[in-house]
Design a protein around this nucleic acid. Structure first.
Lengths: 237, 237
DNA sequence: TGTACATCAGTGAACGCGCGTTCACTGATGTAC
DNA sequence: TGTACATCAGTGAACGCGCGTTCACTGATGTAC
């Protein structure tokens, strides 16, 4: 059992330490993250960071990627902690996990879901991990449909044809389930819920609820339930 | 008819020119707006700006305030351009006006609704103008209720007591109408729609819809209709 | 097991840059008599 | 109407600062024989 050499392991640890320090710095600098600040916090000279990251943008990219991964992992863990038959429970667990993560890591949340960093273009690798949460929500709705337990309320506005076409394309690209199991109408409402989820969290994290809503957790929970009602998830047992 | 002196008028024009140049700069620098950049674009020396704004933060505050005012004015104008009896028409007009403004001024939108600027604290004056849009939406719902034309669909999730209390407080603070005209349930759904409105626009402006939804305008319109259904606004004549 | 060499982490000085803000100044424009 | 003075817009140099990145370096740690 040779495994990675000592040097390689020390190096990997150092990379983790740098990312951890950078995540802390994010709270001070915002997305205008300063390499020298990170180095200062670590008691290291700024140029030493170049042994680990070729440039500031690469460090930012690593944080971005890891942020999506951590958030996705938190959501996935929360979902699978509940029985597969408890569709609404899973739904609420995912929503709550996202909110909890955002509250625990507000600066990182801002990096992921706030204004794009000026002069920084996110590479393609960030697209897939960014989709984890909405895919989870769609899977929960699909599972409920497969159980025959999805009863969405009728609403007067039908799907416009171009929107239906977009949704159809997305459904066909899905790897996990057969297209017939997820009607366009359901995915459409899942998207509405996804927007509501991140819209509400963004309002809360960025302080736009200040002075209006004080019962934040109850408010959030209630609105996530409202969206679950809209999708037609069964009430909790 | 003396009016403001020539000097005062020239001065006021100059302030407008600076704000216009700063708004353009916002697109390049993001919220890390640079005074020297603004001055450069104007063909002026940076220190000259101090005749008009005591500091960079004051310029930012002016832009923030004006942004809220312009957005609110666009929404108000759109609403009043339609007959007061066409509740859903007014509703959709407000939503569309907000989206159009955001698309036309993405950098300003980012300043208003994106991540908070690090190290900058918005003064109290920005609270009132920031509320214009949600108040408009609430007024439209109230008007429909007064006409006896509000028929919200029944949804299983009731209002939790602390949420109801928060909403009650807000309703009682409202200057425009009697509290009885706006039930808590309705305001709650107006808030959901408000979150949906800005959540969706934020997704679109910040590029989070890239590669998924292509029929942006139809998608937006459809989802604003969905929220209007949820509130119970009558279908358009 | 011991020696010779290669690898690589971290240092410290330096680069060129842009930033917000201050200050003494020069002219031009206004005001008072 | 003309002169004397006050006001104020804009200049340009300077301040102290922090930034990302480069580069030659020094030691320590690893590898090959």
């Amino acid at each position: 059992m040779s495994g990675p050499s000592l040097r390689a392991r020390v190096r990997a640890e150092m990379i983790e330490e740098i990312k951890a320090a950078a995540r802390k710095r994010l709270a001070v600098d915002g997305p205008a993250l300063s390499l020298r600040g990170v180095a200062r916090d670590m008691g290291i000279v700024a140029s030493a960071l170049y042994r680990y990251f070729p440039s500031r943008d690469d460090l930012l990219t690593a944080l971005l990627l890891e942020g999506y991964e951590n958030l996705g992992a938190a959501a996935t863990t929360a979902a699978t902690a509940r029985p597969a038959s408890d569709h609404r429970g899973r739904w609420l667990a995912v929503c709550t996990a996202v909110r909890d993560w955002a509250i625990a890591h507000p600066a990182e949340y801002g990096l992921l879901y706030g204004s794009p960093v000026p002069g920084y273009r996110a590479p393609q690798d960030t697209v897939a991990p960014a989709a984890t949460v909405v895919l989870l929500l769609a899977d929960i709705a699909t599972a409920a449909a497969l159980d025959g337990r999805l009863t969405p309320p009728p609403l007067p506005s039908p799907l416009p044809a171009p929107v239906r076409a977009d949704l159809r394309t997305l459904i066909e690209q899905r790897p996990t389930a057969a297209p017939a199991d997820l009607p366009e109408e359901t995915l459409d409402r899942v998207f509405a819920a996804w927007t509501q989820l991140f819209g509400l969290i963004t309002f809360e994290i960025f302080g736009r609820l200040e002075g209006t809503v004080t019962a934040r957790a109850e408010y959030f929970d209630h609105h996530m339930n409202l969206m679950a009602d809209l999708i037609g998830l069964p009430a909790q047992p």
